[in-house]
Design a binder for these strands. Structure first.
Lengths: 342, 342
DNA sequence: CTGTTAGCGCATTCAC
DNA sequence: GTGAATGCGCTAACAG
C-alpha cells in the first residue's frame, strides 16, 4: 500500500533504522489508516527461537503461597505454548539472606532472556537488578516491589490497603467490649517481611482512624515446638478476644492451637493466603476468613508481560500493577481454585 | 516423522476422514511422542476468514452490570485481535418478555458463527437454543444457565453459594438482638429473576442452619417514584435493623433513602454488583459492601471459549463454569476495576 | 485415500 | 537504503 517491501515495513515497525524518513512517514501513515495491530504469535512462529526465563522466588513447598505463583506461571506457559519458553527455577531460602545472595550470584552469571523475581531481601535484590540492568536483561517483580529497581513491571498487592481491608472486616464484626488479638511471628531473620509490616501499618492506621486502636492486643508466636502452648496461653490471658488475626500465611498454626483448646467457633481467626493448610482450616471452621492476593494471576501476568516486552517492546518500563484483594470464607472457597480467567 | 504429508496430518487433526486407519495410528503416535500442541493463532491466520458473533443480553446502560460483561467481551476481542471477529449486539428488555421474544426471533434468522446469551426468560431462551442447535450454531451462556439447553459452556456464579456467603458475612457482624432487613424489588415482569431467587434461597438456608432465621425481616420496594419514602418507612418501622440487604444490583436505591434519612453509618447496607451507582455509594459510605461476580471475566471467557470451539473443536460441550464471588468494600475497591488478568 | 502447492503475517538473510 | 527470497505452523484446493 505504501509501495515498499515487507523488509522496509519490518525495519520501521521495529525501529531498526536504515530507512529513509520519507518512506517511514508513508508507511506509518498507512499503518495508522488500516489500524495495524502487531501479531505476537505469528511473530514468535517466524522467529523460531526459544526464550530462557529465570524464575527466582522463595522456595515453594507444595500447597504453599509460592506454589500458586508457579501455577500461574505454568498456566501462562500453556497459554503461550506457541512461543517456546524454557523456565528455569532458582529458589532461595526466604529466611536466609546468605542463601538469597548465593542464588542471586548464580543467576547474575547466567544468560537469560528474562527474569521473574519474587523479592525478599532488599539489598540483595537491588544488587541483582543492577547487574541485570547492565546486561539489558528485562525483569519483573511478583508479590513485592523493590524501590530503586527498574523492572519492566511489577505485580503486587497494596499491602497497606490489605491491612485496612482487614481492619474494615474486623470493625464490621467486632462486638462491644471485645478485643482483637494480633499474633506476630518471630522471624528467623532479623528483618521482618516488608509485606507483613505494610499490612500491619495499614491495619493500625485504620483502627486508629476508627477509634478502635485500644481494642487490639498482641502476642508473639515463636517458631519453636511449644508454639501451640504459647498461643493458647495468650488466648487464655485475653478472655475477651473475639478475633485472632495473623498477617502472614501461617494462620493454620494458630488454628491448630484453637482446635487444641476447643475454641473453634468461639474465636474468629482471620489469616492470609489460600495455602493448602489454611484451606483445610477454613473448611473445618477453625479459620473464619482468609485474605488473598491472587498469586496465580501474579505469575501469569509476569510471564505475559515478559513475552510482550521481548517480542514487541511494548509500552513503557516500570509499570506498577496492584492486583485485587479477595476475601475467602467457606462459602465462596470452592470457586477460588485455579481461576485465572475462567 | 510418520512418513506422511502435511495434508494427511491436517485431516487427522481435524477428524476430516478420508484417512487410512494405519496412517492415522502412525501419525497419532508421533503426535503424542512429540507432545504436539495445536496453535490456534497460526490456524486463524491461515484460515483467513472472519467470524460473526452475536451477543444478546439485557440492554446494558452505561456503568451497569451488563456493560461490564461487554467490557470483558471487548478485552477478549482485543486479546484475540489476530482472529477476525465481528460482534453484533442484540440487546433486549429484561423486564419485557415480548421484547426478548422478538429479539430472539430476529437472531434465529441471522447467520452467525457463535452466539453469546445472557438469558433472562427461560422459555424464550430455550426456544432460541433449539433453533441454534438445529442450525449447528454454538452458543455460550453468561450470568445465568438455562436447564435443558446445550451450550458449549456457561460462565455463571453459583447463586445459592452467593446467598450463603452473604449470610456468613451477616452472621459475622450481627449484634445481639439486632435484625436484618431484606429489601425485595417489585419486578415489573411477573416472574422474579431466577438469580435473585437462588440467592435468596441460599441466604435463607444459611440463616436457618445457623439459627438466625427469625432475625430477618422483609420489605417490598416498588419501582415507583415514592420508593424512597417506602424504604425509609420500613427502616423506621424496624428500629433494630443493623443490616439492610438487597439481592440485586439496585442497592444504590436503598442507599439514597439511607442518605436521605441520615442513617449512613447506622445501618450497614450490603448489595450486589460493582455498577457505577453502587460504587459511588460504596465510596460515600452509604453502601458497606458489595458482592460481585466477575462480569468481565464472564464476557472474556465466553468469547475465548467460542473461539476455541470454532477453531479447534476442543473438549466436550456443556461445560459449566462457576466463577468466584468477590466481596468489595471501600478499601479493596480501587483494585477491582477492569481486571481480567492483570 | 494421499501428496503437492500456494499463501496467511511475520522476521531474517542476502544481494543490489 | 531497499527489495526479493525463504521459512515458520497451518489450511484449502486440487491433482492423482
Amino acid at each position: 500500500m505504501a509501495g515498499v517491501s515487507a523488509g522496509t515495513v519490518d525495519r520501521i515497525l521495529h525501529s531498526r533504522g536504515n530507512v529513509s524518513e520519507a518512506k517511514r512517514q508513508a508507511v506509518e501513515a498507512v499503518l495508522n489508516k488500516v489500524g495495524y495491530k502487531f501479531n505476537i504469535h505469528t511473530s514468535a512462529v517466524s522467529l523460531k527461537r526459544g526464550y530462557h526465563f529465570i524464575v527466582t522466588t522463595p522456595l515453594a513447598g507444595e500447597g504453599e503461597y509460592w506454589a500458586s505463583v508457579s501455577a500461574g506461571i505454568h498456566e501462562a506457559l500453556e497459554e503461550y505454548s506457541d512461543i517456546q519458553i524454557l523456565p528455569d527455577y532458582f529458589p532461595y531460602d526466604q529466611f536466609d539472606e546468605k542463601s538469597c545472595r548465593s542464588v542471586f550470584d548464580t543467576i547474575s552469571k547466567q544468560e537469560a532472556d528474562g527474569v521473574i523475581i519474587g523479592p525478599t531481601f532488599r539489598k540483595e535484590t537491588l544488587a541483582l537488578c543492577r547487574k541485570l540492568d547492565k546486561k539489558g536483561i528485562p525483569y519483573v517483580f511478583v508479590d513485592a516491589d523493590i524501590e530503586g529497581a527498574h523492572p519492566v513491571a511489577s505485580y503486587t498487592v497494596d499491602q497497606h490497603s490489605c491491612g485496612a481491608f482487614l481492619g474494615r472486616m474486623l470493625m464490621a464484626g467486632l462486638h462491644e467490649g471485645k478485643t482483637i488479638l494480633l499474633f506476630r511471628s518471630e522471624r528467623r531473620s532479623e528483618e521482618r517481611s516488608s509485606n507483613t509490616l505494610a499490612r500491619e501499618k495499614g491495619l493500625m492506621d485504620f483502627l486508629q482512624e476508627q477509634g478502635l486502636g485500644n481494642q487490639l492486643v498482641q502476642a508473639i508466636v515463636p517458631q519453636t515446638e511449644d508454639a501451640e502452648e504459647i498461643i493458647l496461653d495468650a488466648l487464655n490471658r485475653h478472655p475477651d478476644v473475639q478475633y485472632a488475626i495473623v498477617l502472614n500465611s501461617r494462620g493454620h498454626v494458630i488454628a491448630s492451637a484453637i482446635k487444641q483448646g476447643q475454641l473453634t467457633g468461639k474465636i474468629q481467626l482471620i489469616g492470609f493466603d489460600l495455602t493448602r493448610k489454611n484451606v483445610e482450616c477454613l473448611l473445618d471452621g477453625s479459620i473464619a476468613a482468609l485474605l488473598c492476593q491472587r498469586p496465580q494471576l501474579q505469575g501469569f501476568s509476569a510471564i505475559r508481560r515478559l513475552i510482550s516486552w521481548l517480542l514487541y517492546h511494548s509500552k513503557e518500563k516500570n509499570e506498577r500493577h496492584f492486583l485485587p484483594i479477595d476475601l475467602v470464607v467457606k462459602e465462596n472457597l470452592p470457586y477460588y481454585r485455579e481461576v485465572i480467567r475462567g
